[in-house]
Design a protein around this nucleic acid. Sequence first.
DNA 1: CTGAAAGCGCTTACAG
DNA 2: CTGAAAGCGCTTACAG
Lengths: 330, 330
Amino acid sequence: MKNTIADIAKKAGVAKSTVSRFLNGGSVSHATRQKIELVIQETGYIPNSFAQSLKAKKTSMIGTIVPRLDSFSASQTVAGMDEELRKHGYQLLIINASQDLSREIEALYDLARQKISGIILFATQVTETHLAAIKEISIPVILLGQQHKEVHSMIYNDHAAGYDMGRYVLSKGHRHIAYIGVTEKDVAVGVQRKEGFLKALSEYDGVEAIFYESGFKMSDGVAEALAIFEQNRTMPTAVVCATDNIALGVMKAAHMRGIHIPNELSVTGFGGYDVTEVIHPGLTTVKYGYSQAGHLAAQHIIKLVNDEPVDFLTVMNCDMIHRESVDNLN
Amino acid sequence: MKNTIADIAKKAGVAKSTVSRFLNGGSVSHATRQKIELVIQETGYIPNSFAQSLKAKKTSMIGTIVPRLDSFSASQTVAGMDEELRKHGYQLLIINASQDLSREIEALYDLARQKISGIILFATQVTETHLAAIKEISIPVILLGQQHKEVHSMIYNDHAAGYDMGRYVLSKGHRHIAYIGVTEKDVAVGVQRKEGFLKALSEYDGVEAIFYESGFKMSDGVAEALAIFEQNRTMPTAVVCATDNIALGVMKAAHMRGIHIPNELSVTGFGGYDVTEVIHPGLTTVKYGYSQAGHLAAQHIIKLVNDEPVDFLTVMNCDMIHRESVDNLN
DNA sequence: CTGAAAGCGCTTACAG
DNA sequence: CTGAAAGCGCTTACAG
């Protein structure tokens, strides 16, 4: 099973270089071609791609680093990238950083060591260490989901999404609003969405908005909502959540406490996860085009790999989806 | 940036072999160590893993082939595998076959070419071509989700799951049941679950069960349910679905038609997707331990790679989860 | 069209 | 502890 090109050459009675030429579509006479074909058939020869890459000094592999694999956004995006990449003859190497920033850095170096042609970094934060690593490996890198002026970036228009959501909720007459956000270290989700929302708030008078911060998990949303329900404050009429996951948690908590949505409490999310459509009431949210983003990121990284120009910053739009989880108070 | 071990050696004033030894933790004097460390720091040297693998003749990479990336079961399983593999110093290379059997075959060969140490094949079907490829590449392969006597296999106890579900639904007094299954080409989901269910049926008298076949997508479930609702037959009191996705589709269809669950129609699934817990009513289903399966599969492939013995067949149990989507007719 | 030879960047006995 | 040399499996000018 462990055939080398030398074995094939010997068995076929030709030189190694001839076999190599055959393999790579070089000019080989009909007779030799047949001999080699036969031997390869018989032996089940599979070229060693290390040796190939060692000479070729490049691979047709693109690496991607994701914070986690088991999230809707990540899996959708990666599936999109994968499709596009394969269409262009590239293979995708996926690395799961398990929400650990230092693993993202490690992964950057790992991919460099493997002579990957380009990297799409599904970022949640961009630290100095990230930047240093990106510079050091000197391989094209695209930041997806966050931006930095020194790196090619693709982001969603989170500010606009937050603004739209804020305007919508306010237009429905809500004046007591709880906003459950996430850490500001995540600029896109933690800062931009909130700031967009704040901008909408600033256009209305007499709004009482209280801001909370929760983790990204559904269970975090449940806990946060439960805490809010237990407070001795006036109950908000609407809870605006920075992610669908948190919103799902809030809905679950409401259900646990017998609070009816949307009659007694309105809830909104961001993300547009598939689930939000199946549940009742359907969740009002902002849909992010994860799969398209994946396709686009793939196209961009391919261009970069081939030294073609790519916009330094790409902003992708999102769409408000109005469903039943927001009550009209007017 | 394109430093080789020779560059480092020259700059540090030592031999290539010394640098290599330093890199691999061999014995190097303190002084030399420091010189080399410094040069590596300055140059940002990253070893070329192709050259390394070419000599070492092996990699610490495990490949996995999944039918799709954006499904709950796949992403959970892969995340589990990844965690376990990394703990043991292996890297996971994920290949998405996009539900195309011929791509699974291609992927098998691709991975072989890359001298991957072992492969976990997330199978939906095991054809002759699969077997031929597995034999030809002569790399350890584990089948996950399906079984074949000639290959190491890990499966869920789908028959028992189907049986448990059948008994449960029947015990609640349901006698008009619609079973929405999937293609029998998928032995685990299409055949085993149904047969377990049939076994339960055989233990009761006077049951009318009608069998349908749908695709795997939620939208397929919607379509199938709509068709059932429109038939001029007596409405079933329960719809047993071969997957959670189909069940979700049925629930959606019921909602669209104003059919109340569980009062007017009971629905069940298989899988134990996270969503099934969030929706109302909660879906009665069978929970599959995807993440654990991933961990276990990783442990097994590592053993195989190291020539340690592994059971040829591993059967993993599943747990019934009783929630609110099934009405008690008694 | 075909072959001999050098070289990709690393590792690994083997001497010293 | 250190270095010179051979070799991993392939590709690529260069002759012929």
